[in-house]
Amino acid sequence: MGKPNGTHNYFVYILTNKRKTVLYTGMTNDLVDRLYYHNNPSPNSKSFTAKYNCKFLIYWERFQLVDHAIQREKEIKCWRREKKVALINSFNPEWNFLNEEVG
């Protein structure tokens, strides 16, 4: 059946580790659920976020169309760290961990 038009939510997000030295960009249609899995990886997970302990949300954007979210995720992933830092600073200048704010 799906959701009615206009109620779709897709998120592009950036996670970091506790020391804020690693950045991970991802895309999901359920940010709360995705954060749960980043914070509770399977014991033998070889994922980037598990390896580098990236589980702290520091940036996110919402989109209604999946194509726009995918395009934005690809765009951000191609950026150098300095440009990602500027984006994060414009949204979250203190680099506060936002996990609880979206939950």
Results as ranks from 00 to 15, higher is better:
Met1Cys: 12
Met1Glu: 09
Gly2Asn: 13
Gly2Met: 13
Lys3Gly: 11
Lys3Glu: 15
Lys3Trp: 03
Lys3Phe: 12
Lys3Ser: 13
Pro4Trp: 14
Pro4Gly: 12
Asn5Asp: 15
Asn5Ile: 10
Asn5His: 02
Asn5Ser: 14
Gly6Tyr: 10
Gly6Arg: 03
Gly6Ser: 00
Thr7Arg: 15
Asn9Tyr: 05
Asn9Trp: 00
Asn9Glu: 03
Phe11Ser: 09
Val12Asn: 02
Val12Met: 00
Tyr13His: 01
Ile14Gly: 02
Thr16Pro: 01
Asn17Trp: 08
Lys18Ser: 05
Arg19Met: 03
Arg19Thr: 12
Arg19Val: 09
Arg19Lys: 14
Lys20Asp: 04
Lys20Trp: 13
Thr21Leu: 09
Val22Asp: 07
Val22Lys: 11
Leu23Asn: 13
Leu23Met: 09
Thr25Gln: 00
Thr25Pro: 08
Thr25Val: 11
Gly26Thr: 00
Gly26Tyr: 05
Met27Thr: 05
Thr28Val: 06
Thr28Arg: 07
Leu31Ser: 00
Val32Ala: 15
Asp33Trp: 10
Arg34Asn: 04
Tyr37Phe: 15
Tyr37Val: 14
Tyr37Ala: 10
His38Trp: 03
Asn39Tyr: 01
Asn40Val: 01
Pro41Gly: 03
Pro41Asn: 11
Ser42Phe: 11
Pro43Asp: 15
Ser45Met: 06
Lys46Leu: 13
Ser47Lys: 09
Phe48Asp: 15
Ala50Ser: 13
Lys51Arg: 04
Tyr52Phe: 04
Tyr52Gly: 00
Tyr52Ala: 10
Tyr52Glu: 11
Asn53His: 12
Asn53Ser: 14
Asn53Pro: 00
Cys54Ser: 10
Lys55Met: 10
Phe56Pro: 04
Phe56Gly: 10
Phe56Ile: 11
Leu57Pro: 01
Ile58Arg: 09
Ile58Trp: 11
Tyr59Lys: 07
Tyr59His: 02
Tyr59Phe: 11
Tyr59Trp: 07
Tyr59Ile: 01
Glu61Pro: 03
Glu61Val: 06
Glu61Phe: 00
Glu61Asn: 02
Arg62Gln: 12
Arg62Asp: 07
Gln64Thr: 03
Gln64Phe: 05
Leu65Asp: 04
Val66Pro: 02
Val66Asn: 12
Val66Gly: 09
Ala69Ile: 02
Ala69Val: 02
Gln71Leu: 10
Arg72Lys: 15
Arg72Gly: 07
Glu73Asn: 00
Glu73Ala: 07
Lys74His: 03
Ile76Asp: 00
Ile76Cys: 06
Ile76Tyr: 05
Ile76Ser: 04
Lys77Asn: 06
Lys77Phe: 08
Cys78Trp: 05
Cys78Ile: 00
Cys78Gln: 13
Arg81Ile: 10
Arg81Thr: 11
Arg81Cys: 12
Lys83Arg: 06
Lys84Phe: 10
Lys84Gln: 05
Val85Ala: 06
Val85Lys: 14
Val85Met: 14
Val85Ile: 13
Ala86Trp: 05
Leu87Asp: 14
Leu87Glu: 01
Ile88Gln: 06
Ile88Phe: 07
Asn89Arg: 08
Asn89His: 09
Asn89Met: 08
Phe91Arg: 08
Pro93Leu: 05
Pro93Lys: 06
Pro93Ile: 04
Glu94Thr: 13
Glu94Ser: 10
Trp95Leu: 07
Trp95Cys: 03
Asn96Tyr: 15
Phe97Lys: 07
Phe97Thr: 09
Leu98Met: 07
Leu98Lys: 08
Asn99Gln: 06
Asn99Ala: 01
Glu100Pro: 02
Glu101Ile: 02
Glu101Val: 03
Glu101Trp: 02
Val102His: 07
Val102Lys: 00
Val102Pro: 06
Gly103Trp: 14
